[in-house]
């Protein structure tokens, strides 16, 4: 069966992409605001829950502290999830671009 977090929600997707560099929670929100041209502005509870969830599944991990803030980064497993998602999205994009739905198999 498919993993329960797949396909990734927009929130999860952006967080994994943002955490390809080590960041603490609030910085993740700020980076995502920039990455999304201010269309995705995460709220505190959503970010906290998503970090908990991704950490629990081993897709991100704590790599240090900055004062009382925890710093997180994506894991190898998380990178693999992003690859799977990238393939899925590429396929969907190709359907947008080809404009026809000839079944190949």
């Amino acid at each position: 069966m498919k993993h329960k977090l797949l396909p990734l929600s927009e929130t999860m997707h952006y967080i994994l992409l943002a955490l390809r560099e080590p960041l603490h929670g609030y910085a993740v929100m700020q980076k995502i605001e920039k990455m999304s041209n201010s269309t995705v502005i995460l709220a505190a509870g959503t970010l906290y829950g998503a970090i908990e969830n991704l950490n629990k599944h081993g897709w991100i991990e704590a790599v240090g502290n900055a004062g009382r803030r925890k710093i997180y980064m994506i894991t190898t497993e998380g990178e693999e999830i992003l690859k799977v998602e990238q393939e899925r999205l590429k396929h969907i994009l190709s359907l947008y671009e080809s404009g026809d739905f000839n079944e190949e198999n």
């Binding site: 929600s9 927009e10 929130t11 999860m12 995705v40 502005i41 995460l42 709220a43 505190a44 509870g45 959503t46 829950g49 998503a50």
Partner: peptide
């Protein structure tokens, strides 16, 4: 600014 604590359906559902 952001005056909600949940910004997506998933987190609201989990609540």
């Amino acid at each position: 600014g952001q005056s909600e604590i949940f910004s997506d359906r998933q987190s609201k559902g989990n609540y």
